[in-house]
Amino acid sequence: MQLPYVNVKTPEGNLTAWMEFVLWGFADIPYLQWFLFGMFFVIYMIILLGNGTIMVITKVDPALHTPMYFFLGNFSFVEICYVSVTLPRMLMNLGTQRRTISLVACATQMFWALLLGAAECFLLAVMAYDRYVAICNPLQYSLVMTHKVCIQLVAASWITGIPVQAGQTLQVFSLPFCASNVINHFFCDIPPVLKLACGETFTNELMIFVAAVLFVSAPFLLILTSYSKIIPTVLKLPSATSRTKAFSTCSSHLTVVLLFFGSAIITYLRPEASHSAETDKVLSLFYTIVTPTFNPIIYSLRNKDVIMALKKILFKY
């Protein structure tokens, strides 16, 4: 497919700078295009319905007006935004077989995917901190986790990543792109886009590593630290009912953490030599689609408060 381009004069000579890219996605399996469209469309509807339901019940049910459910509602909102950055474009590409995306649209998609991914990491860390305070310092919980503090923590989860992710995106798209304009991925993620860049990309790869440490590894270590304190405290609880309830809320959170962080860490922190386009696609599906799909299922099936709130809303109407 021939796409518009401009010639850019550089010290090295003439380079072809593409003004549009092709999101290759799953074009290598043409016989499954409509099956994939139907499957991802159903998944998108499940994500919108499931996470939307979590948002509604945590907002309207007074019994769920606690910090834990405030963070859960916000996490579900971030999940909806995150998946909406990638899935609608993928569905359009599968449905129309027109896979082109402009440079500006690609940069915009990359920025929002990075920002929302960072927000998810921080929110999961905040949720772990909330469980730590609730279980390890229950007498101080209402004093520490005030509504103002909860809002500040959510705001910080959103805002902290803006300068770094904006800088990363600008740095990537300031590079000249040549030779090929085909991004072998289903969205504009940094690694597959960088493969199309000409010239030295060491600085960009270093930035990816630093950002991964700041926004993936650091929150993950905070979560592990929180649970290193939580688990021994839960095991010391005298009541079996209390232990079961504590483990129920914690295990739901830990399941989501392992799904999201596991695939993200492998994607961004494994050696460059072990990268392959197909592996990256599969891993990306986990943290962009699988986690948002299972998040409401994990929290609702293992949480009696959420089930009760949902029943009240359903029977009310």
Results as ranks from 00 to 15, higher is better:
L123K: 06
F173H: 07
A156H: 09
D130E: 15
T86C: 10
P88C: 03
A134C: 09
C136N: 02
Q97G: 02
T86H: 05
Q171K: 10
S142R: 08
G73A: 03
V154S: 11
L114S: 12
R131N: 10
E79Y: 07
V149T: 12
S142P: 01
L116D: 02
T160C: 15
F173M: 05
Y129H: 13
T96E: 01
Q140D: 15
V144W: 02
M110D: 12
C136P: 00
Q109R: 01
C150L: 02
G117V: 04
L139S: 14
S174N: 15
Q152A: 14
P176T: 06
C106A: 06
P88R: 00
L153V: 06
N137C: 07
T96S: 02
G167Q: 12
A107L: 08
R99S: 01
F111E: 13
Y132W: 06
V83Q: 02
M127C: 09
Q140L: 15
M110K: 04
G161D: 11
V154Y: 04
P138D: 07
N74I: 03
E120L: 15
P176F: 05
A118R: 06
Q140M: 12
W158H: 13
P163I: 11
V172H: 05
T169V: 11
I151Y: 09
Q171S: 15
L91A: 00
V85H: 02
Q171W: 11
L124W: 05
M145A: 01
L115G: 10
G167D: 12
P163F: 09
A119C: 14
F173S: 08
P88D: 04
T96K: 00
P138S: 09
L170H: 11
F77K: 14
S102Q: 01
V149N: 10
I135F: 01
L170A: 13
M110G: 08
A134K: 10
L91C: 00
A156T: 14
C106E: 02
V149A: 14
M145Q: 05
Q165D: 11
L116T: 02
V83C: 03
C150S: 15
C121I: 05
F77G: 13
D130N: 13
Y141N: 04
Y132S: 04
A125G: 14
